[in-house]
C-alpha cells in the first residue's frame, strides 16, 4: 500500500498541504458554486446584484466626491473611474473579509470532518474573482464606449500587466484574510475590527480619488506605502490610461503581499490543526 499519513504533534510541511488542496479541487469548485447558489437564492434580482451594488455605490461616490467635493479624476469620465475602482476594491475587500471569518463560520463542519481547510479561502477567492469578472464586463463596455467617444485612452500595451496586477492584489488580499482568520480564532475583537477597518482602509487607498490628487507630503507617502495602492494604480493605469506608477512602492507592495501570503499559510496551517479545541 502506497498511501501513508503520519500524524504527530509537529506541523507538517507546507508543500504537502498545498498538494492536498489541489487534490480537493473538486470541492473548491463545489464550494464556489454553493456560495453563488445560496447568496442569490430567494432574491428577486439574483446575480444582477453583482452589477447593481457597485453601480449604486459608484453613483454615490460620483455625487459625493465628484460633484460635491469636486475631486478630479484626471480626465477619466467619473462613472467609469468610480466603477472600475469599486470593482477593484471589491475584489480585494472580499478576499479579506470573506476569508477573515473562515474558521468561525465553518467551525461546525471543521469540527466534524477533515479536509484541507485552505480549500475554503481559495473558494472564497474564486467567488470574488468571478464577481469581479462580471463587473469587469460592464467596466470594459464603458471603456469601449468612452474610447469610441475619445474621452479615454487606455495603455493597451499595459493590459499584459493586468493579470499580474490581479494576482498581486489577490495574493495580498488572501494573505491578509487568512492571517485575520487565524488570529480571529483566539481574538474575536478582530471580527469587529475587520468590518469597519476595511472601510477605513478603502479611504486610505486611492479608490475614490486618484493618487495624483494627493499633495506631496506625509499623507502621500502613507498612501503610497499602503500595499494596496500599487496594484490599484497599475490596474487603473492599464484600463483607464491614468494612474501613478512608482517602482519602489510597487516593489514594497509585492514584498508585503508575498510575506502576508507565506505568513498567512503558515499561520493557517498551525491554527487548522487545533483550532477545534479553542473555538
Amino acid at each position: 500500500m502506497t498511501y501513508h499519513v503520519h500524524i504527530s504533534s509537529e506541523t507538517e510541511c507546507v508543500g504537502l498541504n498545498l498538494g492536498e488542496v489541489w487534490q480537493y479541487r473538486d470541492l473548491i469548485v463545489l464550494l464556489t458554486k454553493k456560495t453563488f447558489t445560496l447568496t442569490y437564492k430567494q432574491t428577486v434580482l439574483g446575480p444582477a446584484w453583482i452589477i447593481i451594488s457597485p453601480l449604486l455605490s459608484s453613483i454615490a461616490y460620483m455625487l459625493v466626491f465628484g460633484v460635491i467635493a469636486g475631486i478630479s479624476t484626471n480626465g477619466v469620465p467619473q462613472i467609469l473611474f468610480y466603477l472600475a475602482s469599486t470593482a477593484i476594491w471589491g475584489l480585494f475587500a472580499s478576499a479579506v473579509t470573506d476569508n477573515a471569518a473562515t474558521f468561525i463560520a465553518n467551525a461546525n463542519v471543521f469540527g466534524k470532518v477533515y479536509f484541507p481547510r485552505l480549500t475554503v479561502p481559495v473558494s472564497n477567492l474564486l467567488v470574488g474573482l468571478i464577481r469581479f469578472g462580471i463587473q469587469m464586463i460592464l467596466v470594459l463596455a464603458l471603456v469601449a464606449f468612452f474610447v469610441v467617444q475619445g474621452t479615454v485612452s487606455p495603455n493597451w500595451l499595459m493590459w499584459l500587466i493586468i493579470p499580474l496586477a490581479l494576482v498581486h492584489l489577490c495574493v495580498l488580499g488572501m494573505g491578509v484574510g487568512i492571517i485575520l482568520s487565524s488570529l480571529t480564532t483566539k481574538y474575536r475583537d478582530l471580527q469587529i475590527l475587520v468590518s469597519f477597518g476595511m472601510q477605513l482602509w478603502m479611504f486610505g487607498t486611492p479608490i475614490v480619488y486618484p493618487l495624483s490628487q494627493i499633495p506631496e507630503g506625509i499623507l502621500r507617502t502613507v498612501v503610497m506605502l499602503n500595499p494596496v495602492t500599487a496594484p490599484v494604480e497599475w490596474l487603473r493605469f492599464a484600463l483607464l490610461g491614468s494612474g501613478t506608477i512608482d517602482p519602489i512602492t510597487t516593489g514594497i507592495s509585492i514584498v508585503v503581499a508575498l510575506v502576508c501570503a507565506v505568513c498567512g499559510i503558515l499561520m493557517f496551517n498551525r491554527v487548522e490543526r487545533t483550532f477545534v479545541d479553542t473555538v
Binding site: V5, H6, I7, S8, S9, F110, G111, K112, V113, Y114, R273, T274, V276, D277
Partner: peptide
C-alpha cells in the same frame, strides 16, 4: 485529523 495530538505518533 480534526485536531492534532499533543504528544505521540
Amino acid at each position: 485529523r480534526i485536531t492534532a495530538p499533543t504528544e505521540g505518533e
